[in-house]
Computed example of a mutant assay.
Amino acid sequence: MFVARSLIRSGVMSATSGVVQRLEQRAQLADEIILRLQQQVGQLRRTIVGREEQRLAEENSLLRQEVTQLKATLVGAETRNGVKQIPVPKAGSTVAASAVKPPTQPAASAKAQAPAQAPADQKQQGAPENQKKKEKKEKPKKEAKKDGKQDDQAAAEVDFRNLDLRIGKITNVKKHPDADSLYVEEVELGETQPRTVVSGLVKHIPIEEMQDRMVILCCNLKPAKMRGVLSQAMVMCASSPDKVEILSPPSDAVPGDRVCCEGYEMSESFPVQMNPKRKIFERIQPDLKTDDKLQATYKGSLWKVEGKGHIVAATMANSGIK
């Protein structure tokens, strides 16, 4: 009997030690899994941070380029208006300027030490000095008036030449996944890559008529996201509160052809991207209209593709364009 009890106890103890050993093994395995997960999470965090830094660096580079272009445009406009470009003084020039000022003090003391002249001589000399002072006071006012005129001239320069209008072909079109009233189009412009354009034309133009259609695009608006999709241009249309029609180019126009306007000489380079804060397009748009012959105009001057023909609407005469 005693022997049987001893055997039972030894069996229970051996079984218990086996369970404990398995539990310890599982705990060690769990620790290893947790460590690997922590390492993977850390690697994912570093990857995400690196991508975000790269994206921000690219955005900064684009902003620098935009600022450089805007500076060049501003300098060109000021030069055409006769504004003299004064270089920014360097650090050394301030030292040189300060070194020139002290000699004026001995001159002032020399005047103070000069002998007094007769009252008649003082009156004769005083008159020219008073006139010089008046002239100095009047000069800043004249310069201020000139600056005001130059600002008016700069504002008057906003016209059709600020628009980058080109012929494009819609090679693919589909409805926006998150907006029932929007199309998402891929448009060929003769560039290395097609541009993505988002247009609110679903209620006006059937999707079958959008596919492979030749259109006029405004290409230098600032790209903007429309319900999550970045739009890189705008389809130009004749528009009224009740109806919208896409403008049509000449039949022999090809993607990449530039649209110009009679009486407005275009430069060889494309216009720079328009700054939304200056409201350039909003200032030009009220003068964009179709005439009674359905032809697109700016202040009465016809749009055209050089050597190929004019831009027209299908049926909408005397309508706004946007």
Rank of each mutant, 00 (worst) to 15 (best):
Met1Asp: 08
Phe2Arg: 11
Ser6Asp: 06
Ile8Pro: 03
Gly18Asp: 12
Val20Trp: 08
Gln21Cys: 11
Leu23Trp: 12
Arg26His: 08
Asp31Cys: 07
Asp31Gly: 10
Ile33Asn: 06
Ile34Ala: 13
Arg36Leu: 01
Gln38Pro: 05
Val41Trp: 03
Val41Gln: 06
Gly42Val: 05
Leu44Asn: 07
Arg46Phe: 09
Gly50Leu: 12
Gln54Glu: 13
Glu58Val: 11
Ser61Gln: 15
Glu66Cys: 06
Leu70Cys: 08
Lys71Ala: 09
Thr73Leu: 14
Leu74Trp: 06
Asn81Pro: 06
Val83Thr: 06
Gln85Leu: 14
Ile86Arg: 05
Pro87Arg: 06
Pro89Gly: 02
Lys90Ala: 08
Ala91Phe: 11
Gly92Lys: 15
Ser93Asn: 10
Ala96Thr: 12
Ala96Cys: 11
Ala97Asp: 10
Ala99Met: 15
Ala99Asn: 15
Val100His: 13
Lys101Phe: 11
Pro102His: 05
Pro106Asp: 15
Ala107Glu: 04
Ala108Trp: 02
Ser109Ala: 14
Lys111Leu: 10
Ala112Gln: 14
Gln113Val: 09
Gln117Glu: 12
Pro119Asn: 09
Lys123Trp: 07
Gln125Tyr: 10
Ala127Ile: 11
Ala127His: 15
Pro128Met: 04
Asn130Thr: 15
Gln131Cys: 13
Gln131Thr: 09
Gln131Glu: 15
Gln131Asn: 11
Lys132His: 12
Lys133Phe: 12
Lys133Asp: 07
Lys136Val: 14
Lys137Cys: 05
Glu138Asn: 13
Lys145Leu: 09
Lys146Val: 08
Ala154Asp: 03
Ala155Ser: 11
Ala156Asn: 10
Glu157Ala: 08
Val158Ala: 00
Leu165Val: 07
Arg166Asp: 04
Ile167Leu: 03
Lys169Pro: 00
His176Thr: 08
Ala179Pro: 04
Glu185Trp: 06
Glu185Lys: 01
Gly190Ser: 06
Gly190Trp: 04
Thr196Lys: 05
Val198Ala: 01
His204Val: 01
His204Asp: 04
Pro206Ala: 10
Ile207Ser: 13
Glu209Pro: 05
Met210Thr: 01
Asp212Tyr: 13
Asp212Val: 10
Val215Gln: 00
Val215Leu: 05
Leu217Asp: 00
Asn220Cys: 10
Ser231Gly: 07
Ser231Cys: 08
Ala233Pro: 02
Ala233Glu: 00
Met236Ala: 04
Lys243Leu: 11
Glu245Ser: 03
Asp252Gly: 04
Ala253Ile: 04
Asp257Ser: 02
Asp257His: 05
Val259Tyr: 01
Cys261Asn: 05
Tyr264Thr: 02
Glu265Phe: 01
Ser269Cys: 10
Phe270Ser: 10
Val272Leu: 12
Asn275Asp: 09
Arg278Phe: 11
Arg278Asn: 14
Arg278His: 13
Ile280Asn: 00
Glu282Ile: 00
Glu282Arg: 15
Thr290Gly: 03
Thr290Tyr: 05
Leu294Glu: 03
Leu294Thr: 08
Ala296Cys: 10
Tyr298Gly: 02
Tyr298Ile: 03
Lys299Val: 05
Val305Ser: 00
Val312Ser: 06
Ala313Tyr: 02
Ala314Thr: 14
Ala317Asn: 05
